[in-house]
Amino acid sequence: MAFLNSFDISGYGLSAQRVRVNTISANIANAQTTRTNEGGPYRRQEVIFKAIDFNKVYNKALENETSALEYSDPLKEGLAGLKPNPAIMSVVVDKISRDDKAPKMKFDPSHPDADANGYVAYPNINPVVEMADLVEATRSYQANVAAFESAKNMAGSAISILQN
């Protein structure tokens, strides 16, 4: 059913934005972390999204279905003229990349992680940028929730119309 596609699209968007919010939250939480297991200060992480064209997947599945049918089958003749749904694009998390910018160096000779010159390497994280990204990710998440709710209400209305 075509209306289920909107649930899928919203679901993928919700999942991707949830990962983004979690990553940004980790960046904010570790903005003052000067020592990690890998050594050195915490490195900012950024989520990279990737668009998925479900139209290609749908066309391939449709081709496989029609090629599996016998040539004399009337169903195959009906499927031969079938046009696929419009392109359905979605987004998934491609990867979480690490920002390798140079850390901020602050003079603090009393800090346990200070180098021989008294400088401490702090993560190169700007809390203002992180908060702006967090607001953007939260709003995107809310938009996907609203789209999901609208699709749910439309499906419920359609079912109630069919019941009457």
Rank of each mutant, 00 (worst) to 15 (best):
D99M: 05
I88A: 15
M89G: 00
Y119A: 04
D94Y: 10
E65S: 09
M105P: 00
D73E: 07
L69W: 12
D108T: 06
P103Q: 15
V92H: 05
A61L: 10
A116V: 10
S90Y: 07
D113I: 08
A116T: 02
L79G: 06
M89W: 05
N124P: 03
Y122E: 05
N85D: 14
S90G: 15
A68K: 13
D100M: 15
P86R: 10
F107W: 04
K95I: 09
Y119K: 06
V92Q: 12
V57F: 09
A87W: 09
A68R: 14
A87T: 15
A102E: 10
N64Q: 14
S110H: 04
N59Q: 15
E77A: 12
N64M: 09
E63Q: 07
A61G: 10
Y71I: 00
A61N: 12
P74L: 01
Y58S: 11
K95W: 04
V120Y: 06
D73F: 07
L69T: 08
K95V: 08
P74E: 09
L82V: 12
L79N: 03
L69F: 03
I88H: 11
P103R: 11
Y122R: 04
N55F: 15
K56A: 06
A80M: 14
N64H: 06
K76Y: 11
A61T: 08
A61I: 11
E70T: 08
F107R: 00
P109A: 13
K106S: 01
G118Y: 07
P123S: 05
V93W: 05
K104P: 04
K76G: 09
E63C: 05
E63T: 13
H111D: 12
G78S: 06
I88V: 13
K101L: 15
K106N: 09
P109I: 08
I88M: 15
S72L: 08
P112T: 01
V93N: 09
E65Y: 07
L62C: 02
E65M: 12
L75Y: 14
M105C: 11
K60F: 02
D113N: 06
P109L: 03
N85F: 13
V120C: 01
K101V: 09
R98N: 02
S90T: 08
Y119C: 02
S110N: 10
S67R: 15
D115M: 00
G78D: 08
P109N: 13
F107D: 03
P103W: 14
N55H: 11
V91D: 00
L62H: 14
P103G: 05
V57A: 02
E63W: 02
D99Y: 01
D73V: 02
E70M: 13
P74H: 09
L69G: 05
A80C: 03
P112D: 04
G81Y: 08
A114M: 08
V57N: 07
A121M: 04
N124S: 01
S67W: 08
P74I: 00
L62I: 03
